[in-house]
């Protein structure tokens, strides 16, 4: 039994992993530590949580275009998320994910933030723009 969400595959690739759902816009510069993969900003709500190896689900990015470099550095250090699933991709995320080779899907419907929870097992097919939330029977 799965829930299927559909969106626009912006950076191709496949991923399967555990979802981390962040319900606020992320400024990669400042909110994520590129040396550890930890979420350090966002008012401490996700303190200690790492994006590494996860399917990162969030509304959109904000802040400086330097955020793209932060995403790139995460991948260079092998600390990057497996994929990103967003409501709306902006240049910061697009540039970062292309550089880092991170599959990226945006314009997802139904709303990924309402249909995916942290800990869910999620499959991302950014070739076809499919997000599958695998639900255990």
């Amino acid at each position: 039994m799965s829930i299927f969400l559909r969106g626009r595959g912006l950076v191709e690739g496949l991923a399967l992993g555990e979802a981390i759902v962040v319900d606020k816009p992320i400024s990669f510069l400042g909110d994520v530590d590129p040396r550890t993969g930890e979420i350090v900003g966002l008012n401490g709500r996700f303190r200690g949580t790492k994006v590494t190896g996860k399917i990162l689900v969030f509304p959109h990015s904000k802040g400086s275009t330097v955020g793209s470099y932060i995403i790139y550095e995460l991948s260079r250090r092998k600390l990057a998320p497996l994929a990103m699933v967003v409501r709306k991709a902006e240049p910061i995320i697009i540039v970062g994910c292309v550089l880092a080779g991170i599959p990226l899907i945006d314009n997802v419907t139904p709303d990924p933030l309402a249909n995916i929870r942290s800990g869910d097992n999620v499959r991302v097919d950014a070739y076809r723009g499919i997000v599958e939330v695998l639900v255990d029977e």
């Binding site: 590129p34 400086s64 275009t65 330097v66 470099y69 932060i70 790139y72 550095e73 550089l99």
Partner: peptide, 15 residues
Amino acid sequence: SGISYTTIGDAGLEL
């Protein structure tokens, strides 16, 4: 743009 080390840090320098 994005030339200052203050702005782009080690990540930007590497790139």
